[in-house]
Computed example of a mutant assay.
Amino acid sequence: MSKILYPYQDAFERDLDRREIAAATKDEYTATLQDFFHYLEHFNPTYQREHRVNQLQTQDVEQYLAMLIANREIQNQTYNKVLSHLNVYFKFLFSHNWTPYLPTLDLKSKPKQNDRPINYQWVDNLDDWLANPQLHVYTRAAMLLTTKGYPVQVYLKPNFTAHLKTSDWPSNQQAFLTRLRAFLEPLQTRFQCPDWFLKQRAATDPHLTLPGLHKYLRPDEAVTHFSLSPSVLYQGYLVNYLRRHPELSDQAAVAALHLDPGAIDYYRRLARHAD
């Protein structure tokens, strides 16, 4: 018997089957609802008390959606898809009298966003950014690691930067690393942790989270005048790399950038249309 991932899963999936919903779409519903209830279980007092779906109201769904925007930087298209999944689910529960509320009723979808051009030129000016004392060292470290091909979910992992080989990096980057080490020394000593991205206050887990990193990145956007969102920086790096190496085959580019093979066409299109 498969594990139940969210309340009323079996009944809801039977309803999706009755409506001949595609398997891929069913998987999307499962992912959304599993994530939603996992979030409620850990961060929502209403649900934590009794784990009762019939107690959830609009503000509980709003809290989850706000987290997706703030912490995961979802775009409006993803926001609308998640809201649609939740709306279908709660309408199903309401139709069976399993909840007296329809918590998604007053929640509105967001307008379609215009695609913003990705800034890929920041990579070409990395030396200047690393030498700029107006930028926090964590901002500069994030930019540097991005140009090494590491996305944020990799370089924030515990023990990753602690074991990173940097001895062959060029001299200007070594100069920044010297400044970074001076900043980190008291933190690494206090926490007995050799990683780079550490909290500056006492904590059981000293590692900086993605929301914590954003607290350093966002103010520095007033200096750079472009988005310092780690995902946007990484996209800019990928576009820059592909523009500089147009001769690479798809296979070679995927290997060099550690990309999913299915993503290479998308980034090649971005590179072709980048101004």
Rank of each mutant, 00 (worst) to 15 (best):
E41M: 08
L144T: 08
L144S: 07
L5H: 12
A175R: 14
L248T: 01
R272H: 12
Y8A: 12
L248C: 06
R18D: 13
H42Y: 11
L177Q: 01
F12C: 13
L86C: 04
Q48H: 12
D128I: 11
M1W: 13
D127V: 15
R18V: 08
K157G: 02
F92S: 04
S109K: 15
Q48R: 15
F90T: 03
D106G: 12
V137C: 11
N125I: 04
D168L: 13
S84E: 10
H163S: 09
V239E: 02
A31K: 15
Y216W: 09
N114Q: 12
L184R: 05
L86T: 03
Y29Q: 04
D250F: 10
T204L: 11
D260M: 10
A222P: 02
L187N: 02
I69F: 00
V82M: 03
D115M: 07
L177E: 05
F183W: 11
D260A: 13
M67Q: 09
L228E: 01
R218L: 10
V82N: 02
I4S: 12
N132K: 09
T146K: 01
F160L: 04
C193Y: 03
K3Y: 14
I69Y: 01
V223C: 11
Q59F: 14
N76M: 06
R52P: 07
R201M: 10
K215N: 03
D115F: 07
A202F: 07
W196F: 10
D17W: 11
R14T: 14
P7L: 10
F43N: 10
P100I: 14
V53R: 03
L233R: 02
A66K: 03
H96Q: 15
Q251R: 14
D275Y: 05
Y266N: 08
